[in-house]
């Protein structure tokens, strides 16, 4: 079917508008980070890298970045291990309850963050976990497991289980089969789950706001408290850096995921 030139132009214009709409916030943040004045005015005036320098030299900013990296790394590892085990178990479960279990494991994605935040906060107050590294890792891991579960389950779905029978007939026990056949073939799914888990934790703000303390702030919390205090363009610089970093990670994850899907 061919389109008339008019329809083609109209369609192109619509697509362009939607695309512009989607990237507009980013397009605002990036120029603002080079603003010479200490304000979040848009459009910005002049050009400076001072706010980037401030981000890396101010201990408040650098320590929160370090906290975020630490939490996100631990969360990525924990969520990947747990999520992969869960995906594997659910994949092999024959009973109908597997579907229900899967739904329960996915609830952290569906339940509003505020609701989770209040619940976690209430428990953490009693158990003195507010503002602790352990508390952050546990809360974020819960939020990240669904992403690992989805990515690994998708890999397992296309994984040919008859290969495991073949490996067994050739002399491989269960663990050897998993190590030499199953894992290498679902590795792209595990890796993309790892990346999504990392980014989920690194970006997380709602639950973090509830369980943070002046002694342990993650980067998103620091951005939020900074912008509620004063109009410091450093947040724009941080935003730009975060935008670049997450785009790279998610992009990598999607590439791996896409490759997995095709085989």
């Amino acid at each position: 079917m061919t389109m008339s030139p008019f329809t083609r132009v109209l369609l192109g214009l619509c697509c362009l508008l939607v695309a512009l709409w989607l990237v507009a916030p980013t397009l605002v943040v990036v120029p603002m980070s080079f603003n010479e004045n200490k304000s979040l005015a848009f459009p910005p005036k002049g050009f400076t890298l001072d706010w980037y320098a401030n981000f890396f030299s101010n201990p408040e900013w650098s320590s929160s970045l370090f906290n975020s990296l630490k939490v996100a790394s631990l969360v990525a590892v924990a969520a990947t291990v747990l999520g992969t085990l869960a995906a594997f178990g659910l994949d092999r479960m024959k009973s109908a309850s597997a579907g229900w279990l899967r739904m329960i494991l996915l609830t952290p994605m569906i339940v509003p963050g505020v609701v989770l935040g209040i619940g976690i906060y209430a428990v953490y107050l009693d158990t003195h976990l507010v503002g602790t590294l352990f508390g952050f890792v546990v809360a974020h891991t819960m939020l990240a497991i669904p992403f690992v579960l989805i990515a690994v389950s998708a890999s397992l779905e296309v994984f040919d289980k008859r290969l495991e029978l073949a490996a067994a007939s050739l002399g491989a026990g269960r663990w050897t089969t998993f190590r030499t056949v199953t894992m290498p073939l679902i590795a792209p799914g595990i890796l993309s789950g790892f990346l999504f888990a990392f980014v989920t934790s690194f970006d997380e703000i709602i639950v973090s706001l509830f369980i943070t303390s002046p002694y342990l702030k993650t980067l998103p919390v620091q951005i939020y408290s900074s912008i509620t205090r004063d109009a410091d363009p450093t947040v724009a610089a941080v935003g730009t850096i975060l935008f670049l970093a997450t785009t790279l990670l998610i992009g990598l994850g999607l590439v791996l995921f896409g490759r997995e899907r095709r085989t």
């Binding site: 040919d160 008859r162 290969l163 029978l165 073949a166 490996a167 007939s169 056949v181 290498p184 073939l185 085989t263």
Partner: peptide, 12 residues
């Protein structure tokens, strides 16, 4: 030794 209908070669 077992030979399967769908070959079951390890693709990696």
């Amino acid at each position: 030794g077992v030979v399967f209908q769908h070959y079951a070669l390890f693709p990696h």
